[in-house]
Design a protein around this nucleic acid. Structure first.
Lengths: 252, 252
DNA sequence: TCTAGTTGTCTATTGCTATAGACGACTAGA
DNA sequence: TCTAGTCGTCTATAGCAATAGACAACTAGA
């Protein structure tokens, strides 16, 4: 691996040195594309490279071992547990599960919670409903090969899609659940992408470490009649996922 | 403003409490959409809400004052310096400068550095060049209303676009510079989006504080003949910018 | 079997982080 | 003018973060 690309460490920045080092090493792990992603340089070498004490490097490694990113073996060295970053495709006609085709052997979406409640103004506007209309909210967790990668909050018009939560829970697929309501297909109208530190709930659900970054997509899906069907905010673990926006060759 | 949405603070996480609080308040500032974005609650109230000492809150506020996010007035209160988050559109036929139309009165792109060098394997592949072919690398800084918002590294085939750096420096526009090479128009073929902590160079160039998050887009632009023209990696300051992917109505 | 290289553990010390309490300085409204 | 509310400054203390040095435990190869 090429670890010569060590970023300088910021002192007195409010972020502990061991955490900055851990973040850098974790970034290397996810980026793939190294020559030999197997082995981390010895602790003494890393300490010299980062300009810190060996114990500080050890704190960083200890954190990453607990996260499952590294595996330390006494006398031999410290090694990456290879978990390459997934690429998630975002395109007009992309289904949720289709985004990971061929990259993960097992792709699952699990319902964590659901509720029927009054729409906030933002949600009502996105779904073109009257202010305060009732909507179904779905909290779901996306997993690839048993590893949590995304956490979504979705909203549906409660009048039109009563019971969508139960049907999603059965099938594990939004597409299948919507089909039972006569929505044969839907397209992604617009997606706004931002990034922030993960909140405490996402931290727990996706088993992230404090300070982790999430990519946030806010999307509206329209049915083929042009009416909005679903509004969702999805948080992706940024160290496990990247998003890909493809140019579309033509309107099919 | 609605500050009831206070995330719990993580202790012993390697991130100082004052920094976690600062990050949350900064996030509120950028999100816009508050009732009255003007005033921050009193320090004593914030301390109680976050469950920390008032001095810890003061450390967070001091940091944000230095960043220009807040302004503290003795006896009166602490106020947001309103700087709403920009929305940057990503679509097949979007020009760089067009993404911010109507949101910033002044939009500039500045050349920081340029070099002609051998292409790395990733760059050569993206531009469909022979391995080791020579490419022009442009380091540019994007500013909106004098505020740095993005930092890009772009690559062009050196054989085809010799002198592109100078022409970009004159015009401040990639589109104009490419037109002088007979590339009338170009389209975005694919964009991969990820997020990470800002590196030290980006930190300095965009005047970010340590630990800041950047949205990273890696894009390939094709000329109308289908040949790749430009490969670029752009880092956007995540607390100042969000990205928007629009569905395209038809192929024009 | 020996040795070099590597990770694991221990003790001690220094400085930043966070807490706690008190009081001063300033503003706005009664 | 007074008072409540708010930000600014000071002192003191406990705990984590980081440094420093030493040595034990383990692995792989000579």
């Amino acid at each position: 691996m090429r670890t010569e690309t060590a970023e300088p460490i910021e002192r007195r920045s409010g972020v502990a040195l061991w955490r900055q080092i851990a973040d850098q090493i974790r970034g290397l792990a996810g980026s793939g594309a190294e020559g030999a992603p197997g082995r981390l340089p010895p602790e003494t070498v890393l300490a010299a490279r980062f300009g810190v004490n060996r114990h500080t490097v050890r704190s960083a490694i200890a954190q990453l071992v607990q996260e499952g990113v590294l595996r330390a073996e006494q006398g031999r060295g410290t090694f990456f547990e290879t978990q390459p970053r997934l690429t998630y495709a975002i395109a007009t006609r992309t289904r949720f599960s289709a985004g990971l085709e061929g990259q993960a052997t097992e792709r699952r979406s699990r319902l964590l919670a659901h509720a029927t409640e009054a729409a906030t103004s933002a949600v009502a506007e996105a779904l073109a409903l009257a202010p305060g209309a009732r909507v179904v909210r779905l909290e779901t967790l996306g997993e690839a090969d048993g590893r949590p990668v995304s956490r979504a909050t979705s909203f549906f018009d409660a009048a039109r899609f009563a019971g969508v939560a139960e049907r999603f829970a059965e099938s594990g697929s939004i597409t299948v659940a919507l089909r039972t309501f006569g929505v044969g297909d839907y397209v992604r109208r617009s997606t706004v992408i931002s990034a922030r530190h993960a909140g405490s709930a996402d931290l727990a659900d996706m088993r992230l470490s404090p300070g982790a970054i999430v990519l946030v997509t806010m999307a509206v899906n329209d049915g083929l009649d042009g009416r909005p069907v679903q509004y969702s905010e999805t948080r992706f673990a940024a160290d496990r996922v990247e998003l890909k926006v493809e140019a579309e060759t033509a309107q099919s």
